[in-house]
Design a protein around this nucleic acid. Structure first.
Length: 162
DNA sequence: GCCAACGTTGGC
DNA sequence: GCCAACGTTGGC
């Protein structure tokens, strides 16, 4: 099982939008970046991911989702009326893919990007790397565990014996 | 609103 | 295949 992170703008599709969907489940369409697409194709049903709010104040991790359907063609690419329309993607030869995600829970509090940056243990996390613009990315296992602990109010930096 | 970082496009 | 121009992302 790998862990991931999905970015979304809360004004466009935030965690409360997902929560309001039937079964708190929605397809993650609109990814138009090859690297992000490739990550989605690696996802397995049952993989968990952070839900991240971008382009807002403050940006940060707000919840946990679970992949409930493996990657399948993103049909929004075939819809001329969609802003995600891409004539280069066809049903016979789909270029873009999506997964279905279900909201598992919101975190007890938002873990801001600034807070993530403060942790030395997280400096190699793709999310906090300079210039990163991927909307879908992996989360290293140690980072996953640490962030969950942070969300519960425990800061592992202060839990270690002297 | 600014702008750095990055991906994509297209001329050559 | 190179690379300049352009568009987008997203933090600040």
């Amino acid at each position: 099982m790998n862990h991931w992170l999905f970015k979304s703008e809360p004004d466009v599709f935030g965690i409360d939008h997902l929560a309001a969907k039937p079964k708190a489940t929605e397809h993650w369409d609109g990814v138009r970046n090859y690297q992000a697409r490739n990550f989605m194709r690696q996802m397995q049903v049952g993989d968990q991911a952070f839900f991240y709010h971008s382009n807002c104040d403050p940006p940060g991790i707000v919840g946990i989702v679970e992949v409930v359907r493996q990657a399948y063609p993103d049909h929004s690419a075939w819809n001329p009326d969609s802003k995600y329309f891409d004539p280069a993607s066809t049903p016979d030869n789909p270029r873009w893919f999506m997964v279905d995600v279900r909201l598992v829970r919101k975190l007890p509090r938002l873990i801001s990007l600034a807070e993530l940056r403060e942790h030395p243990a997280l400096i190699d996390m793709p999310l906090v790397r300079r210039g990163n613009r991927l909307s879908v990315m992996p989360v290293p296992e140690q980072a996953w565990q640490l962030i969950l602990a942070m969300a519960q109010g425990h800061d592992e930096r202060f839990d270690k014996p002297l």
